[in-house]
Amino acid sequence: MFLTLAKGFVIGAGLIMPIGAQNAYVLSQGIKRNYHILAATICIICDFILMSLGVFGGGALLSSHPVIALVVTILGIVFLTVYGALFFKSFYLASNEQMAEQMSPVTKKTVIFTTLAVTLLNPHVYLDTVVLIGSISNQFDEAERVFFLFGTLLASLTWFYMLSLGAAKMSPWLSTPKVQRGINLLVALIMWAIAASLLTTLL
């Protein structure tokens, strides 16, 4: 059972850790120390729901309804393109005064909405959690699937809290205007790269 849990942890970590829209947003909130634990927790809860759906048969349901995937893909392209443009504008036009203003806190409601958007409007999230995790879990019997699922969820919990708390701890350095401009550019490029990949699959 421990081996199954370890497999789930390694596979989960491999899918979650690559830099994407979720990670970029949690990182940015950690740097600001602005509801960063909340943002990480929302990501973990979403992973819990989606991975559970995948392990217990949701992958087949998603595959049988391509219209759902199409709608999410289109919404994701629009959101990520616009969100990337906002970060690029912050990088390109920001002065030191504007950078200081950007570091000011945003509301809890804004953090909740944005975290849900970067998570649920990215079809890659469904591919990784529902489809891929669900497919891999089929190699285990019913009892072992629970341990596999627990391992993937443990990876999600560990990663997002480490990312959030690590960014907050390094905030004095990461929040300097020069570094923050670089992070804004990186986040913009990540958002646009994901949107471009979604558009490519759509076409």
Results as ranks from 00 to 15, higher is better:
115 T>A: 12
118 V>G: 02
141 D>S: 08
27 L>N: 04
133 I>K: 00
202 L>Y: 09
186 L>D: 00
195 A>K: 00
2 F>G: 15
142 E>L: 12
86 L>G: 14
182 G>W: 07
107 T>P: 09
182 G>T: 12
66 P>V: 12
85 A>Q: 13
33 R>I: 09
184 N>K: 08
146 V>A: 11
54 G>F: 05
89 K>I: 12
120 L>M: 11
27 L>K: 00
62 L>T: 05
21 A>D: 04
120 L>D: 01
178 K>P: 01
60 A>Q: 14
112 I>P: 03
121 L>V: 08
169 K>M: 12
34 N>F: 06
166 G>M: 05
89 K>R: 15
136 I>A: 07
82 V>G: 06
170 M>R: 05
90 S>R: 15
17 M>G: 06
187 V>S: 03
159 W>D: 02
124 H>A: 11
37 I>E: 08
16 I>P: 03
23 N>T: 10
180 Q>H: 12
111 V>Y: 04
28 S>A: 13
176 T>M: 10
75 L>A: 13
132 L>M: 13
58 G>A: 12
30 G>H: 03
120 L>E: 01
143 A>F: 11
77 I>M: 12
199 L>H: 04
111 V>T: 08
126 Y>M: 04
63 S>Q: 14
85 A>F: 14
26 V>W: 02
125 V>Q: 00
134 G>N: 06
42 I>E: 01
71 V>S: 10
49 I>P: 02
59 G>C: 10
168 A>M: 06
194 I>H: 00
163 L>E: 05
67 V>P: 03
195 A>M: 04
184 N>F: 11
75 L>W: 11
194 I>D: 00
199 L>G: 06
66 P>W: 13
69 A>S: 14
31 I>R: 00
143 A>M: 09
76 G>W: 06
157 L>S: 05
47 D>Q: 05
64 S>W: 12
121 L>P: 00
147 F>S: 12
101 E>L: 15
137 S>F: 04
103 M>T: 06
129 T>S: 13
166 G>I: 03
48 F>K: 01
88 F>S: 10
56 F>W: 13
74 I>D: 06
197 S>N: 11
25 Y>H: 07
64 S>L: 11
3 L>K: 14
175 S>Y: 02
85 A>H: 12
79 F>E: 01
144 E>W: 01
198 L>V: 03
107 T>D: 12
84 G>E: 06
122 N>R: 07
178 K>A: 12
147 F>N: 08
89 K>W: 08
54 G>W: 01
100 A>D: 14
106 V>P: 03
126 Y>E: 02
199 L>D: 02
196 A>S: 07
3 L>D: 15
53 L>G: 15
93 L>H: 14
10 V>L: 15
177 P>E: 06
93 L>A: 15
27 L>T: 09
186 L>P: 01
168 A>Y: 03
42 I>D: 03
92 Y>M: 13
174 L>K: 04
